[in-house]
């Protein structure tokens, strides 16, 4: 019997999230390294439409688990329903998304299943017969190859790491409908979804973004960033999460997974380390320039032009150069 890879579908507002198809791509990659069957599991109420979409897009068998009254995501419910369902299937891999949903249930699920857990997986490779799971460490300055002897592994896959297959499957996969029983969460009760009223402040439309990170050092130094931005037409100032957490910039200016995703023609990252949570919000920019005093800063790996300098002295110099041309 083939071993099994299970993909846990992520959805919100009645739509399958694109990351789900990236998880399928990761599962196919694992399947090429070790023969295995792939199944997708989706939890919701109602669940049929979601399951149909998955089966048509991927051609894979789908376990559609109807969990009465579950419309969105719920950690306690996901952990208990999935643990119960997967105990019998004994999958070799459970692929979840490295998102606010996946990260919320994957580690606990691993403990319930007695499985090993590896989060933030970006690549899967085979080295000397070992399957290695590559993930970033230390704010993205380095990557680590993780290995485990454990027969069962729960993985969370970093969005943007595996490219989803764009074509529809030739034949839809079979859909198996089930209903989960007695799952009323008593320990944590959902109080609904709140939508933020924070609107991006001009950074979505900007053609040029000058972004400040913790390297700016002080709120007063932000003035440099604004002066730099003033050199460009159609420009805006943005920041990393830390800078917004400190109250130096507004959350409306935060770029990244929990901020805004921007795609200007030019992105100038000043004193930003290049953590993946930031990079995922700006890596699609047309041209990327990074100024950082650390030659090994991760931001340089996603930049077109890298400048190893103290931003506090370099930026005034650049402004002066530009103004005297």
């Amino acid at each position: 019997m083939n071993s099994l890879i299970v993909v846990i579908a992520e959805h919100a507002d009645g739509q399958i999230r694109p990351i789900t198809y990236e998880l399928v791509a990761c599962a196919r990659r694992l399947q090429r390294l070790q023969p295995a069957d792939i199944r997708i599991v989706v939890l919701s109420d109602p669940v049929e439409t979601l399951a149909e979409t998955l089966s048509q897009k991927t051609g894979l068998p789908v376990d559609a688990i109807r969990v009465p009254h579950l419309t969105g995501y719920h950690g306690d419910v996901y952990r208990s329903v999935l643990a119960k369902f997967l105990k019998d299937l004994q999958p070799r891999y459970v692929c979840t998304a490295h998102t606010s949903q996946g990260l919320d249930f994957a580690p606990g699920l691993a403990i319930r299943l007695g499985a090993a857990c590896i989060t933030g997986v970006e690549a899967v490779t085979e080295i000397n017969g070992d399957i290695c799971f590559t993930r970033r460490i230390c704010g993205g300055k380095l990557v680590a190859d993780m290995v485990t002897d454990h027969p069962q592994r729960v993985l969370s896959i970093l969005p943007g790491s595996f490219s989803a297959d764009a074509s529809e499957a030739v034949e839809p996969g079979a859909v198996f409908c089930k209903t989960a029983t007695s799952t009323t969460p008593v320990r944590s009760i959902s109080r609904g979804i709140l939508r933020s009223s924070v609107k991006a402040s001009g950074i979505m439309e900007a053609d040029v973004i000058v972004a400040a990170g913790r390297g700016v050092g002080d709120k007063d130094n932000l003035e440099l960033i604004f002066r730099m931005a003033a050199l460009f037409s159609g420009s805006a100032v943005a920041g990393s999460r830390i800078v917004c957490d400190m109250g130096w910039l507004d959350y409306a200016q935060q770029v990244g997974v929990t901020g805004f995703t921007v795609q200007p023609s030019l992105y100038i990252a000043c004193g930003i380390s290049g953590a993946i949570q930031h990079v995922s919000g700006m890596r699609a920019s047309g041209f990327i320039v990074a100024i950082n005093s650390d030659p090994n800063a991760a931001i340089f790996n996603v930049s077109d032009v890298c400048i190893v300098e103290d931003m506090l002295t370099f930026i005034p110099l650049f402004i002066e150069t530009a103004q005297h041309q």
Binding site: I127, K141, V143, M146, N301, V305, I307, E309, T313
Partner: peptide
């Protein structure tokens, strides 16, 4: 249960051209 086999510097996904010279040379180059 999970071990680290090795660590490495990450690969580049863009050209990553490092500007050389003094700070003012870099400013002019940029």
């Amino acid at each position: 249960a999970v071990h680290v086999a090795r660590t490495a510097f990450p690969g580049k996904i863009r050209a990553g051209c490092f500007l050389e010279g003094s700070a003012s040379e870099k400013a002019a180059r940029l």
